[in-house]
């Protein structure tokens, strides 16, 4: 909960209308981003992303499992988000449930693509080990450590960085003669396969305050929003997912305008993130 006086609210709204926000940023400017990879040794890939005072961790864990009966030729990816009570006292107990579900669903929508597997971030058929029998289950977990607005964008970029850090162990399968038998699987602990993460999108949330919209809102700014649209855009400028938050309705033309602005901003953010990933990997 953000407690603001009338004067402070007026100051924030006025600043946004004049394209100069309380922390000196312009409307379409992100806070400074810092990226660290390999923060969780037990995971197959992990990353910590800081966006101003917002801090999140993403981890990717791979486990061998059984593909579902409906999709025997595909692996499984699941995304969960947890908001730690260390970030805010209201996240204690079941207080974070609603927000965590909202964030998880938004991320699933943006990263997992359609039911047929088209538009998915990770090619699900690349996770298959033995058709119909063994596949990789990828668990992507996001953790909010410190919350100062724009959690969704921070989580999506942390997941992007974590995926680029992920190595899936090479697997040798010894086929037994009887087809019904469970195949023997030998997991290598030396050789790893990397994902192609160039097509992983970033999410840009445009928060509408008054008549204007801003990117990377702090929690003070978020408390003044009428609605927000989160657009996930990949390197090729394709829209991979979209969610609207906030109660107020939006005119269709405003939404189309927000999408095109988000597309433009996302390309800058992607390049920024890519260079951060490169320097984080070099530092490791």
């Amino acid at each position: 909960m953000v407690g603001l006086s009338e004067g402070e609210k007026h100051f924030i709204r006025g600043g946004i209308a004049q394209d100069l926000r309380a922390d000196g940023r312009r409307r379409l400017q992100f806070r400074s981003v810092s990226v660290e990879t390999g923060v969780i040794p037990q995971a197959n890939g992990s990353a910590r992303v800081r966006l101003g005072a917002t801090e999140v961790i993403a981890s990717v864990k791979a486990e061998l499992g059984k593909p579902s009966i409906l999709h025997p030729d595909k692996g499984k990816v699941s995304i969960f988000v947890d908001c730690s009570p260390t970030a805010a006292p209201m996240f204690e107990g079941r207080g974070s449930e609603e927000l965590s579900t909202e964030l998880s669903v938004a991320l699933q929508r943006c990263l997992l693509g359609g039911k047929s597997g088209a538009g998915a971030v990770i090619d699900l058929s690349s996770l298959i080990v033995v058709d119909g029998k063994v596949c990789w289950d990828l668990y992507i977990d996001g953790l909010v450590i410190s919350s100062d607005g724009n959690l969704l964008d921070a989580l999506a970029s942390a997941i992007k960085v974590a995926l680029s850090d992920t190595g899936i162990p090479k697997v040798n399968v010894s086929l037994s003669a009887a087809t019904d038998e469970e195949p023997e699987v030998d997991v290598s602990d030396e050789e790893f396969v990397q994902f192609d993460t160039s097509s992983v999108p970033v999410i840009v949330t445009l928060t509408k305050v008054g008549k204007d919209y801003i990117v990377d809102a702090t929690s003070e700014e978020e408390s003044q929003m009428s609605s927000a649209v989160s657009v996930s855009v990949n390197r090729h400028g394709k829209i991979c997912g979209l969610t609207k938050r906030g109660g107020a309705g939006l005119d269709p033309s405003v939404i189309f305008d927000m999408i095109s602005v988000a597309k433009h901003v996302s390309q800058q953010f992607l390049s920024l993130l890519d260079s951060e990933i490169a320097s984080a990997e070099a530092a490791e």
């Binding site: 929508r109 943006c110 997992l112 693509g113 359609g114 088209a118 538009g119 649209v229 990949n234 394709k238 829209i239 991979c240 997912g241 979209l242 969610t243 609207k244 109660g247 309705g249 939006l250 005119d251 269709p252 939404i255």
Partner: peptide, 11 residues
């Protein structure tokens, strides 16, 4: 006015 809009897949 659009009150809710969601999208999945690549568009």
């Amino acid at each position: 006015e659009i009150t809710q809009l969601t999208l999945t897949g690549e568009w």
